[in-house]
Design a protein around this nucleic acid. Structure first.
Lengths: 182, 182
DNA sequence: GTCTATATTAAGATAGAC
DNA sequence: GTCTATCTTAATATAGAC
């Protein structure tokens, strides 16, 4: 069960983990960012940082469902639906300025701890894209490959945008999403 | 200057940082992995973990030069040179099992500390690919875009391979490298 | 150049008052 | 539900012997 007060601080947790990573974020830092004392944090999240991240992942799963996957399920052509997915992703990653929490977890010390939850989120997204592509005429195999390629492009463009210090790669990939669907 | 003994332990440092990330790796862990006591580590790397990572990045820069960039500079068609680059990348990332240290740094707490070194390594790679593509007839602009797209695909496929628990994405991207050059 | 021992600081985590 | 105060553990880092 998740109390309202707990929910209230999840966006702050997302922000801290994006800034410092999972291993790099300390309870003290989270305490300052939320304005809650350490003891209060442990009251809401008895499992400490791990439970905080699990809540964040659940929160992100809901955001994924309510924005990205919702966009893919709308009526309209595959092209327009992928266009809307691009808008949703741009909002989540703030035009490429913000990293992906899933990638942060995969490249940190706690990968094993969260591998199942991360895998499920990635799969849900990829499978939803594949559904749309199948509807638009692709074979199952081809739709799977194409949807994975899109996920690859998004994740890779976030890395390159951070690494090169320019948002061009992310923006270009987002823009190309509807263009390459036909 | 870097002593021979220091060099000797760099592959171990790479291994530890890949496994635990930068923030997640502790001096104690590095001590055990290298077989050197903490004080010995500080003797070789007075700057601690930061200096260790700087040495690792220098080491990776040389590896990049000696394998990936070397492949791109060989004689032959663009296609065969990208094929050889793919082989070099497969070796570095062990068919997709190993993460990229640059991505680890970009998604951790020390991104600012290493941003310049990371940027230079990424740029060197992308620019070398762009050179090859320009030679094979592309405009400068198109070559730049295409080479960035390839870097995006490699980085993204590493993330997806880790996240989905299968090396298929990385292997497919590597295989597609020579195919999409024409 | 490596070790043991230790200093110092910060992190995670909890007790108990309000 | 939040706080102050504190405990415990682990991390970074160094001193000094060999």
């Amino acid at each position: 069960m998740s109390s309202a007060l707990r929910e209230k601080h999840l966006p702050t947790l997302v922000s801290v983990f994006r800034q410092s990573g999972y291993d790099g974020a300390s309870i003290t830092q989270i305490s300052k960012a939320t304005g809650l004392g350490k003891a209060s944090l442990y009251h809401h999240f008895p499992g400490g940082k791990e439970e905080m991240m699990r809540s964040v992942l659940q929160f992100l799963g809901e955001a994924l469902e309510n924005t990205v996957i919702k966009a893919l399920r709308e009526t309209g052509t595959a092209k327009t639906r992928f266009k809307k997915m691009g808008d949703a992703l741009s909002a989540i990653y703030e035009e490429g300025e913000q990293p992906c929490i899933l990638a942060i977890l995969l490249l940190g010390d706690a990968k094993e701890t969260f591998s199942q939850q991360v895998k499920e989120l990635l799969q849900a997204w990829v499978e939803e894209m594949a559904k749309v592509l199948q509807e638009s005429g692709m074979t199952q195999k081809e739709a799977k490959r194409r949807s994975e390629d899109i996920a690859i492009a998004i994740q890779g463009s976030l890395i390159l945008s951070q690494g090169l210090g320019t948002l061009t790669p992310f923006k270009r990939v987002i823009k190309s999403l509807p263009e390459q669907i036909n």
